[in-house]
Design a protein around this nucleic acid. Structure first.
Length: 819
RNA sequence: GGGCGAGUGGUGGAAUGGUUUACACAACAGACUUAAAAUCUGUCCCGGUAAAACGGUUGUGGGUUCGAGUCCCACCUCGCCCACCA
């Protein structure tokens, strides 16, 4: 009997799949389509560890199952290969990122193949390939054409280690997303002229659509909180002795009578204008230090003592014409709302803390159950608000805005937490922004015929130290004629945020070699949205960006769907046994190739990782898990060998029914669970089926018979998405010439899993007292009679009077007994 | 502080409002073996019993129900995301 040895079979099948093009999809197939994959991978020098295996096995199973079920199933592959690690490596070693990226990708190829992931290598893409970033640049020019890409000078996050600005979404807890460990410093702000994409234009649409997405709930919640819509009003306050008006945003216009002072952000343009001579020196230095001080330091600690200064100026509260002081404080942020607030200390904790510290008036205007001396955010009934007294907060809120609106003092306003997407990066290893600056024409997009704007090869990658990229020093690249007027112009020297490349790649996947267009509409129509997407890291920003791009493409008729990903799973991380995260810096990542080399094989790693827990949950790496999975595969192998070696013999009806029951229960459960991405229970069902067959084998009932063959083949087909190598091997040993992975999925026959006789549970007062075997469709009276005959049931019903019977057909009867 | 989610054996985890603990890991026992590994078979929530019966048990307390791990309310703990966003 042959023994299960993954080393013998896995490489053999990987080669055969490659040679046969088993996973090559025909993009113009007439079969129903299915496309699924994990989030774009960055090919780092270290390769993948066992944590990544989970991320890529999940879509592998989904697309494999669909391929077996007769779909044109496509698991694409590509590399998100622009980025800082390769550039930093170049600075250190002088090896061009073009080369180190290629080397890294090679290692990934080896790992991906060894794990048996069914990707279509013939359609591989790579963001650093000029043929790809040509179209990334084209996307930029389209956005520019539609006024959704613009330049603006403003204070921006600056990571001093990356030597570049960062988008809002790339700052986590005040630190750069690439430098967020404890020893890393906070990012700071620099006033720079930068390129932005107007993502906020779609904020509302995206928010509305989020609820209906078939995505992991926590990811949807993240999307919603990032977009952060709040509905309120913008109210204008007159400034005493100044013609200009001061606008504030508030979500609580019902508390307007309680606004006892105004607070401006230190950067607010009116600060210089209104500050009186007496306070000018102090205010100027406060504003200066606040602006230089990173905004994160200002925000970091909500419990921090409030700081601020009086400007000497007063505003007039439009509802009661009261004179209220205008202050400057760093707890008000220029980037949100209007950069100015009406402070209502009685009903806002921050304003309350500020008022207490600087001894400002506190006027309660909402009455509720909260104690008077505290600040309360809760709603209630208005007091101290003249004609609005007695109104509920909700009604007053609308009424006050309505009344002020007629005087053009206020109007309803919706605000978003999300800011426009800053995409400029002052680094070399990115896609150049395809803009030429011309003195007479301004910024001009590079015409499509001149794309791509290729990255020039350079010798020294070290950033200049200023706030520009090294590209600024490549003179013969920078100096080009203006495409419009032909006068001398200069190229934009910033490159694009890597997220730009990864926000549209799924469209390139469905038309990877198109040299005329980024993608054809026929292809996007057929294949997009993506049926199945999964990821586990940096998901918020990437998903927002990809959704934004799709909405933009949709708005100009380039795609049919406004959403990129129909179904999205956010899987939990795999952590080291001690609970720490696998990481390069810790050096605790386990290379899956090592585990394969130990002899367990790729199938066992895959199976273990899918079986350990539901996909959304974090999992601690368990050394014992792989041998466990290997043991199960071994049982599958051995029973197949024993079947092949067994003697032919007719089975009796009882055994036939038992085998079919085992087979079809597994078909029903595994098919359903894969569809629901419930892999751990699908695998458990397969184990149960194999255990059932082993039991029959132990009783000497394993014979060479069609019923046995069918059961074993069904189990192999159901196991194939999880363990592709062993199943294709056994499939061929069972006499098949074709691959198990294409168009082979067992069909459920419901009759085989329907029993004529079932176990009825008999309860007395909800407690189990007996189990009786009866025909499945027995009437209540029959079950009741049988139940009453049971000795144990008799004992309990004798304790009182039977007042009621609850009957669930085919399942249960509950006798309710009372004294 | 806000939002989302979760608390079930020694462990990872199962469970359409209907037999709690499927499947596995670890542990223990038996078979095979000179022996070990591998493999096969069995035991495995707590109390109770020779074995059953029986009683208790899904973070805590209450509620709805014939019946609650599951639904509702309050509380405790943990995880993730957001957070001086007006």
């Amino acid at each position: 009997m042959k023994r299960y040895n993954p080393k013998d079979i896995e490489v053999k099948w990987q080669k055969k799949w490659d040679a046969d093009g088993t996973y090559k999809v025909d993009l113009d197939s007439v079969k129903p389509k299915y496309i699924g994959f994990g989030m774009f991978n960055y090919p780092s020098g270290a390769g993948i560890h066992v944590g990544h295996v989970r991320a890529f096995t999940i879509p592998d199973i989904m697309t494999r199952a669909k391929r077996q079920q007769g779909f044109a199933s496509y698991q694409p592959i590509g590399w998100d290969s622009f980025g800082l690690p390769a550039e930093n490596y170049a600075i250190k070693t002088g090896v061009p990122p073009q080369e180190s990226t290629k080397t890294a990708i090679k290692k990934y190829h080896e790992q991906y193949r060894a794990l048996g992931w069914a990707v279509d290598w013939t359609k591989e893409i790579n963001t650093t390939d000029p043929e790809y970033y040509k179209w990334t640049q084209w996307v930029f020019t389209k956005l520019f054409e539609h006024n959704l890409a613009y330049q603006q000078e403003s204070p921006q996050w600056w990571c001093n280690q990356c030597k570049t600005v960062l988008a809002d979404e790339q700052v986590l807890g005040g630190k750069c997303w690439r430098h967020d460990s404890e020893e890393d410093p906070l990012v700071s702000k620099r006033n720079l002229k930068q390129w932005f994409f107007r993502i906020t234009k779609f904020a509302d649409e995206m928010l509305e659509a989020t609820e209906d997405l078939d995505w992991t709930q926590s990811v949807k919640a993240s999307q919603q909180s990032w977009i952060g819509r709040s509905i309120g009003a913008e109210v204008s306050f007159a400034i005493e002795g100044n013609k200009k008006e001061l606008k504030v945003f508030t979500t609580r216009p019902d508390t307007l009578y309680g606004a006892t002072f105004i607070v401006l952000a230190p950067e607010h343009p009116l600060v210089a204008d209104i500050t009186t001579e007496e306070y000018k020196a102090d205010i100027t230095s406060y504003a200066k230090s606040s602006i230089v001080k990173s905004e994160v330091e200002r925000q970091q600690d909500a419990d921090k003592e409030k700081t601020g200064l009086f400007t000497g100026a007063y505003a007039i509260n439009p509802v009661n014409n009261k004179k209220i002081p205008i202050w400057v404080a760093d707890y008000v942020l220029m980037g949100y709302g209007t950069g100015a607030i009406m402070a209502v200390p009685a009903h806002d904790e921050r304003d309350f803390a500020f008022a207490k510290k600087f001894d400002l008036d506190i006027t309660r205007v909402v009455s509720n159950n909260e104690p008077d001396e505290d600040c309360t955010h809760a709603e209630g009934v208005l007091i101290n608000s003249e004609e609005y007294n007695g109104m509920s907060s909700a009604i007053a809120r609308e009424q006050i805005v309505k009344d002020l609106q007629t005087k053009k003092i206020a109007h309803e306003k919706v605000n978003y937490r999300m800011r426009d997407w800053l995409i400029s990066r002052q680094r070399y290893w990115g896609a150049p922004i395809p803009i030429i600056h011309c003195e007479s024409c301004g910024p001009v997009a590079v015409p499509e015929k001149d794309l791509p704007v290729e990255l020039p090869k350079i010798e020294n990658y070290r950033p200049t130290g200023g706030y520009v990229s090294v590209l600024a020093g490549v003179e013969d690249w920078v100096n080009v004629p203006c495409p419009t007027c032909n006068k001398p112009g200069k190229r934009e020297t910033d490159t694009m945020d890597g997220y730009v490349c990864s926000s549209w790649y799924f469209l390139r996947y469905v038309d990877p070699t198109n040299s005329e267009q980024a993608w054809s509409s026929a292809r996007s129509k057929q294949w997009i949205p993506v049926d199945f997407y999964n990821g586990g890291d940096h998901a918020t920003a990437h998903l927002l960006y990809a959704r934004f791009f799709m909405r933009f493409f949709h708005s100009i008729g380039l795609v049919d769907s406004p959403e990129p990903f129909k179904r999205m799973i956010y899987h939990g991380k795999i952590k080291a046994g001690d609970g720490s995260v696998f990481s390069k810096s810790k050096g605790n990542g386990i290379d899956p190739l090592e585990v394969i080399e130990q002899g367990y094989g790729a199938d066992a790693i895959r199976l273990y990782e899918m079986f350990a827990a539901p996909v959304e949950l974090a999992v601690l790496w368990d050394e014992q898990g792989i041998p466990g999975a290997y043991r199960f595969l071994n049982r599958v192998w051995n029973i197949t060998q024993e079947f092949l070696a067994s003697s032919e013999e007719q089975l009796d009806d009882k055994i036939t029914a038992d085998i079919r029951m085992i087979e079809h229960k597994a078909i029903a459960k595994v098919t359903e669970d894969i569809d629901g991405v419930l892999f751990n229970t699908a695998i458990a069902a397969l184990m149960e089926a194999v255990n059932g067959l082993y039991k029959l084998k132990g009783e000497g009932k394993l014979k060479k018979d069609d019923v046995w063959q069918s059961a074993i083949e069904s189990i192999l087909m159901l196991l194939a998405p999880f363990a592709p190598h062993i199943t294709d091997e056994l499939w061929s040993q069972l006499g098949h010439d074709d691959s198990i992975h294409i168009d082979h999925w067992p069909t459920l026959n419901i009759d085989y899993v329907t029993l004529d006789t079932v176990t009825f549970v008999v309860q007395v007062n909800g407690k189990l007292r007996a189990q009786i075997q009866l025909p499945k469709d027995s009437e209540k009276e029959v079950v009741l009679t049988a139940a009453k005959e049971d000795e144990n049931v008799k004992e309990y019903t004798a304790k009182g009077n039977l007042v009621k019977e609850i009957f669930i057909p085919g399942k249960l009867i509950n006798l309710v007994v009372k004294d």
